[in-house]
Amino acid sequence: MRDSKNTSADATSLLNDVNKKLDKIIELLEKLVQRVPQTLRSVADVEDALRTGIIDVVTLLSVPDHLRKTLIALAKLGGEATSEDVAKYTGRARAVESAYLNQLATLGYVIKRRKGRKVYFIIPQFESYYEGE
């Protein structure tokens, strides 16, 4: 009985290790993905969003597949959140969301702002509509 308990504890900690390593790998892969040129369609959309300064629902629907869920989650969280908040919302690993959010920042959809020890990702249009008028 005791033995099997130990083994299951060992297995859990092993799984945890594997999980952490997988997160690391995903993070590295994401960094690689960032260097791969975007498809023409998404580049045009990005340019459009940046030119007009509008991130509306049509923009949300036309961002590259792997980033869409992250951007929509950020919008639903009110347009401002940490990678941890987004991960809680999407159910994906924090490292993954962090990589995607950084990609969105590189593409110009979101901005990064440090507040104390936390980094917030912000859809600027979501916070400045009335102030800008």
Binding site: V57, V58, A75, F126, Y129
Partner: peptide, 12 residues
């Protein structure tokens, strides 16, 4: 589009 963008934010 700008109004619609804001409408989404307000709806959320």
């Amino acid at each position: 589009r700008r109004w619609e963008m804001n409408a989404l934010k307000k709806l959320i």
